[in-house]
Simulated assay, not measured.
Amino acid sequence: MNTATRKDEIVAVASSLFKEKGYNAVSMRDIAQEMGIKAASLYNHISGKQEILSTLILFLAEEFTRGMNAVVTSEGSPLDKIKSVIEMHIDITVNHSEALAALNNDWMHLEDEDLIYFVRMREEYEENFRRIIKEGIEVGDLKPRHPEVILFSILSTLRTLYLWYQKRGKLDVNVLKKDMVAVMLEGIMR
């Protein structure tokens, strides 16, 4: 097995354990035990728990950033863009629900440049979303509500979607997108 494949396996196993127990409660020994190997073998593929966390979180943060950048530069109304952001969150949730637990719950354990990079991506993402919402209010697509309240309401739901989605037995993604977009937007549309 090549190093990249083994590293991916280590990250996937760690992701599951981080979700179950939390980053601080998981040791490299726990990861190795879950994989059925010796802890020392992990270090042939990865430098430690911090690298695993960084790999998980930064991969997802970059995926969200790429998605938001595509939405921002796309044609369409602010309402179309908000719909696209919601659908992007659903797609990422469906494909990476375990890793989202680390992104949401353990990002503060990132260190040094990784933490700075993550926070910068998160702030830029939120600012882009805020601008879309403000534009929607300005052009009359959205009710004149405080942009921060709209942003918080949508993002808090989307950031915890992974918890709800796993408990509900994997709803059809297309139904989830259609209904979630409708429920979220009808509360702010004119």
Rank of each mutant, 00 (worst) to 15 (best):
A4W: 06
K19L: 04
P78S: 14
Y23T: 08
M88R: 00
A4H: 11
A61W: 02
R29K: 11
L79N: 05
I31L: 09
V71C: 09
T5I: 14
H45W: 05
R66P: 00
Q50K: 12
K81R: 14
S74E: 13
S15T: 05
G67A: 11
E34P: 01
I90V: 15
E9I: 02
E51D: 13
E9L: 10
G22E: 01
I86H: 07
I82H: 04
L60R: 11
M35Y: 07
L79W: 04
V94A: 15
I46V: 15
E75G: 12
I86Y: 05
N24A: 10
F18Q: 00
H45L: 04
K19M: 10
V13A: 13
I10K: 02
N95L: 14
Y43A: 07
Y43M: 08
F18Y: 08
I92W: 06
K7N: 10
L42V: 02
L60F: 07
Y43P: 01
S84R: 14
M35T: 05
K49E: 04
R66V: 11
K83S: 13
A32W: 06
A14R: 01
S47K: 05
N44H: 15
E62A: 08
I37S: 07
I92N: 03
N44F: 13
T73S: 15
L58W: 05
E62W: 05
E63C: 09
K81H: 10
L56T: 09
G76Y: 11
L60P: 01
K81W: 06
Y23P: 00
N24V: 08
H96T: 06
V11W: 01
A14Y: 03
T5H: 12
S16T: 13
E62T: 10
S16P: 00
V11N: 00
L58V: 08
K21V: 01
L58Q: 06
I90R: 02
E9D: 09
E51T: 08
S27L: 06
I52Q: 00
V72L: 15
I86D: 07
E51Y: 02
S27V: 07
D8H: 12
A40Q: 14
E51K: 00
N69L: 10
K19T: 01
K21M: 04
G22W: 04
V26I: 07
I90N: 01
A4N: 13
N2K: 14
K49S: 06
H45T: 03
I31P: 00
K21S: 11
K19F: 03
V94P: 01
Y23E: 08
K83M: 04
E9T: 04
R66C: 07
Y23Q: 05
I31T: 01
N69G: 06
I31R: 02
S27E: 05
H89N: 14
V11E: 00
M68L: 14
S15A: 15
T73Q: 15
S54C: 06
S74C: 10
I82G: 01
N95S: 15
S27N: 09
I90Q: 03
E75S: 15
K21C: 02
H45F: 15
K7C: 08
H89Q: 04
I37M: 14
V72Y: 11
P78T: 13
E9R: 01
D30H: 12
I52D: 02
G22A: 09
L79Y: 08
A12I: 10
I46N: 02
L42F: 02
Q33D: 03
E20F: 02
K21L: 09
K83P: 00
R6E: 12
K38G: 07
P78M: 10
I37F: 11
H96Q: 13
E34V: 00
D91N: 13
